[in-house]
């Protein structure tokens, strides 16, 4: 962990709270093209605003016309240790702007390739909401594969960049989550998760034994 602090500390606007710099610099990306119609992601995003000492970017708000600023995005990545990608699962993948962001930002020579070592040692954490229930993502379920199978492109993307692909934080059955009352605990868990990452209180080793992390697992994974 020590090498993370070799670089001079760049203070992001959202970090200027006069408090001590966080142990781990968290960059939260949020991508939802239909934010207005969202329940779970909206609740998560709203609570994430209350986490001090992390940086937040609403990708669809920043790039409504998909004109990604590559330099700015690469600088953001350089300035942080953990990259969180929060978005709904659309057709077994992310919304399209995230793909555009990956295509442009993770440049050859920057993120991968001969001299592309800039992201080495950083962590990618996906925070996803899936419409289908947990058991649908199984050999017997209607999605026929476990969720992690659909995430292999992202896992390999992180791997090629020398990044850790952390076990994703997932809300299953998001369409019924409102009436089941599962949204508030999931969003609250999201807040705790972000804070734990920020403060280095998250047990990455233990988490890596799980395919996906749901709100109920957090008590076991977050150290006090």
């Amino acid at each position: 962990m020590a090498q993370r602090f070799d670089r001079p500390w760049r203070l992001n606007a959202s970090l200027q709270h006069g408090m001590d710099p966080p142990l781990t610099r968290v960059l939260l990306y949020y991508a939802h093209p239909g934010h207005r119609y969202s329940h779970s992601n909206k609740a998560m995003w709203d609570l994430a605003q209350k986490v001090d000492g992390i940086s937040r970017v609403d990708l669809y708000s920043e790039y409504p016309r998909f004109n990604i600023d590559i330099d700015q995005e690469q600088q953001r990545l350089l300035d942080h240790d953990v990259v969180v990608m929060q978005c709904p699962l659309f057709w077994y993948s992310t919304p399209s702007l995230v793909k555009e962001w990956i295509d442009l930002t993770l440049e050859h020579g920057f993120a991968y390739g001969h001299e592309g070592t800039q992201l080495k040692g950083k962590t990618l954490l996906m925070a996803l909401t899936a419409a289908g229930p947990h058991d649908a993502y199984s050999k017997e379920g209607y999605q026929r594969y476990p969720l992690r199978t659909f995430l292999t492109p992202f896992e390999q993307t992180a791997h090629l960049c020398g990044m850790e692909f952390a076990s994703p934080y997932v809300l299953f059955g998001s369409l019924r989550a409102v009436e089941d009352g599962r949204i508030p605990p999931h969003a609250e868990g999201y807040r705790r998760l972000l804070e734990a990452y920020r403060d280095d209180r998250f047990d990455l080793t233990k988490a890596s034994e799980l395919d996906v992390i749901e709100a109920e697992h957090l008590n076991d994974l977050i150290k006090d």
Binding site: G34, Y37, A131, A136
Partner: peptide, 16 residues
């Protein structure tokens, strides 16, 4: 952009 409702999910499950 409007997400499917819970009825849609029921339909998918019964189809499955």
């Amino acid at each position: 952009w409007v997400p499917p409702g819970k009825n849609d999910l029921t339909a998918i499950l019964s189809d499955h």
